[in-house]
Simulated assay, not measured.
Amino acid sequence: MTVYAYADSPLGAMLLVGREDDAGARRTGLVSLSVPGQKGAPVVQDGWRHAPGAFADVVAQLTAYFDGTLTRFDLPYADTGTDFQRRVWRALEDIPYGETVSYGQIAALVGATGAGVRAVGTAIGRNPLLVVRPCHRVIGADGALRGYAAGLDRKRLLLGLEGAAAADPSVVAGALVGTPSP
């Protein structure tokens, strides 16, 4: 059965979605963590059960992360996605707190070349576990903040929370804010 709950955060009300077995005793893990307005975010469906207690550990770890006392999540989650997506998502989990890497660096880690680099960006964009799998730590090769399903303002907020050098608010998608585009 699919269960869900909401958790307050600096990013907005996060929707947590998970699965449990029919007996309701064993959780198979977090399936999705999203925020309002996020591209591709799930919507609560008929038949889903509201179960805030099922996510107590998730909420506790999110709270500690946003308080600055947790730098790495340790949560059970349901592995979704294709084999390629799961390889990319595992690479995201290895990016240290407060550091950033480029899309090209992630592509190299998973052995993607040529058109595969674009597929890496697509896989990162489809990451169902916002914050927990730190796709916000992936930036452009030029240091610019690029593509974040929850919006660049939220990406900037998360990087700033972690003290990442790429949190510079003047750099977004390779252009200086306030400077006209060519």
Rank of each mutant, 00 (worst) to 15 (best):
A5V: 05
A5Q: 07
Y6Q: 12
D8L: 09
S9N: 07
P10D: 01
P10E: 04
G12W: 12
A13L: 14
M14V: 13
L15P: 03
L15F: 01
L16I: 00
E20L: 14
D21F: 08
D21R: 14
D22Q: 13
G24Y: 08
A25G: 08
A25L: 13
R27C: 08
G29S: 02
G29K: 06
L30Y: 04
V31H: 07
S32R: 09
S34L: 00
S34G: 02
V35C: 07
V35F: 04
P36E: 07
K39D: 13
K39Y: 14
K39M: 12
K39N: 11
K39T: 10
G40E: 00
G40L: 00
P42I: 00
V43G: 09
V44F: 02
Q45V: 08
D46F: 08
D46K: 10
G47V: 03
G47F: 02
R49H: 01
A51I: 01
A54E: 11
A54M: 05
F55W: 09
D57R: 14
V59M: 04
V59W: 06
A60N: 05
Q61L: 01
Q61D: 01
T63I: 07
T63H: 10
A64G: 05
A64M: 08
L70A: 06
T71I: 06
R72N: 08
R72P: 03
R72A: 15
F73P: 07
P76E: 14
A78S: 13
T82F: 01
T82P: 00
F84V: 04
Q85E: 14
R86F: 00
R87V: 00
R90S: 09
R90F: 01
A91E: 12
L92E: 01
P96N: 01
P96G: 00
Y97F: 15
Y97A: 07
E99I: 03
T100M: 05
V101G: 03
V101L: 11
Y103L: 15
Y103T: 14
I106W: 05
I106N: 00
A107E: 12
A108H: 12
V110F: 01
T113Q: 12
G114W: 05
A115T: 11
A115K: 07
A115W: 05
G116V: 07
V117I: 15
V117W: 05
A123S: 14
G125Y: 01
R126S: 09
R126D: 11
R126P: 03
N127Y: 06
N127F: 02
N127P: 03
P128N: 06
V131A: 00
V131P: 03
V132F: 02
R133I: 10
P134L: 08
H136W: 05
R137T: 10
G140H: 12
D142G: 13
G143P: 09
R146K: 06
R146H: 15
G147M: 05
G147L: 09
G147E: 06
Y148Q: 00
A149H: 02
G151F: 04
L152S: 02
D153A: 10
R154I: 06
R154L: 09
K155C: 03
K155N: 04
L158P: 09
L158F: 13
G160F: 00
G160Q: 03
E162Y: 03
E162R: 02
E162S: 02
G163R: 05
G163M: 04
A164Q: 13
A164M: 10
A165W: 07
A166D: 14
A166H: 13
A167H: 11
S170W: 11
V172C: 11
V172N: 08
A173L: 09
G174V: 12
L176R: 15
L176P: 11
V177A: 13
P180F: 05
S181E: 15
